[in-house]
């Protein structure tokens, strides 16, 4: 790829950096307990928690760094942090 004049770039390329590999603990979402309040989606610093096609809430593990804010802030107990298996 030719160097962009002036060190510029268009959006999209940050997705090449798959930050999911940083994860030590993994948030596991319990569909039964989730009320779909959406707080985890709002508070995720990665913006990687989203609504799935089936209407559930799930993180994108490609980018989830496993910080655990979602689990900590979930008003219920729908998100559990589990040791990542590698």
């Amino acid at each position: 790829m030719a160097l962009a004049v002036g060190c510029r770039a268009r959006p999209g390329k940050s997705r090449d950096n798959k930050t999911g590999s940083w994860r030590v603990f993994k948030p596991v979402f319990d569909r039964e307990k989730c009320t779909q309040c959406g707080l985890c989606m709002t508070l995720c610093p990665e913006g990687c928690v989203h609504e799935t096609e089936e209407g559930f809430v799930a993180p994108d593990y490609t980018y989830c760094k496993g910080c655990g804010i979602c689990a900590e802030e979930c008003p219920g107990t729908a998100i559990a942090m589990k040791q990542e298996e590698k």
Binding site: L3, V5, G6, C7, R8, A9, R10, P11
Partner: peptide, 26 residues
């Protein structure tokens, strides 16, 4: 190229040692 909501571009990014040398060459 310009700052324009219709075609968003990032200006003034930083360059790692992989790229800086070449930016100066250019």
């Amino acid at each position: 190229e310009r700052l324009d909501a219709a075609d968003p571009i990032s200006f003034g990014m930083y360059a790692t040692p992989e790229y800086y040398h070449e930016f100066r060459y250019e």
